[in-house]
Design a binder for these strands. Structure first.
Lengths: 193, 193
DNA sequence: TTCATTTATTGAACTTGTTCAATGTTTTTA
DNA sequence: TAAAAACATTGAACAAGTTCAATAAATGAA
């Protein structure tokens, strides 16, 4: 059952007692979401923090010129939220869309705040999880400053082969920060080698 | 006194009782560091988490081609550490260097772990601080994907005028992800307008 | 199955940014 | 205060990446 997946994910980050683990995971509810549908739209207030149990999502923003930029993709065993909007309950500048039929376990804002009070270890859990997310984003930031588009592409398909295979050129290009035409040319160039 | 600065910074993120605040801030020790000296060198294990009370630091990495990339600058009232190396006590891939004569308040790893156990509210404090850092890095990531070098430069001097004024072209260029020659041309172009 | 829509590819012209080298300016240090 | 070192500017040639437009291929809905 997918709650076991969630419990395992939590345990990998921070040991909770069996009782704490049950209590915390009982605060989640499951939701199915069809391909192309939105879990969150830019401008709304993010009501949930989510754990993906099936499918694939893109977390992205649309800038003033109407261009889409993907902050990250999330597949099974990844977490999704607009952390700023969720934590402070202000309007989000991110959208979250399912790229295929998907399932998530969600916890809403008031329940999460309640759990923080009831189970102090959950503070530690999310402190550690947020730190890990920050570290990987710092690495990506530096990579984006130092590598060419070719290198970033090769690094992505090497690190996340199972995600890469689910994406269109357009979606991947807007994560790598290049045009989809240029990504097409990069792919072609690499195949020829 | 600089401990008051630290206490105010903490209070802005999370309310602690006066007793907790005193106990936590007593775990820090102050250190002066001269211009150009290193608080941390790439390859070492990061022994501290630091709060800047005076001066300016750059947190950066050197890539395989020998190029420097700045992750962030830190002035008075900013925190500095290699969060990955400090938390997991593994070798750092970041260096931290003083850009001018500076002062920091430091807490070492064992003391911080002790405080996490003694004062649960400190878990909450760092959960919130890490979230804020993550949110601002997410924003920077998206900006770097969507904006030209001109826009990133203008945005930086607009957001951090007091930091910009302390930096050489080389330092700022390696934060913006461009060559210092190109930054020089951008500056020139903007002045002419 | 077919038609419409979305996605991918390719080329040409263009823009953004890099590299290298030369020169000038500022800062540091003896 | 002079010399050395670090930093900034500029131009020319180049490389990386974009834009636009045309065409082909794949996908999805009726």
């Amino acid at each position: 059952m997918s709650l076991d997946l969630l419990k395992q994910n939590i345990t990998n980050n921070c040991k909770l007692s069996a009782k704490e683990l049950d209590h915390f995971s009982a605060s989640f509810y499951s939701k199915s979401i069809a391909k192309k549908e939105y879990l969150l739209q830019q401008g709304e207030i993010c009501k949930f923090e989510g754990y993906v149990t099936k499918g694939c999502f893109r977390v992205f923003t649309i800038d003033q010129q109407g261009k889409e930029h993907v902050l990250y993709f999330a597949v099974k065993d990844w977490w999704i939220t607009d952390i700023d909007s969720f934590t402070n309950q202000n309007t989000s500048f991110l959208s979250i869309q399912a790229l295929e039929d998907s399932k998530v376990l969600l916890i809403n804002h008031t329940d999460k705040e309640r759990v923080y009070k009831e189970i102090p270890a959950v503070e530690k859990l999310f402190r550690i999880m947020t730190q890990k997310t920050l570290v990987s984003l710092q690495r990506r930031m530096i990579r984006n400053l130092s590598e060419t588009a070719d290198e970033r592409y090769l690094n992505f398909i090497d690190t996340y082969p199972e995600i890469a295979q689910k994406l269109t050129n357009l979606q991947l290009a807007s994560y790598l920060g290049i045009s989809h035409e240029f990504l097409s040319k990069i792919r072609n160039k690499i195949v020829l080698k």
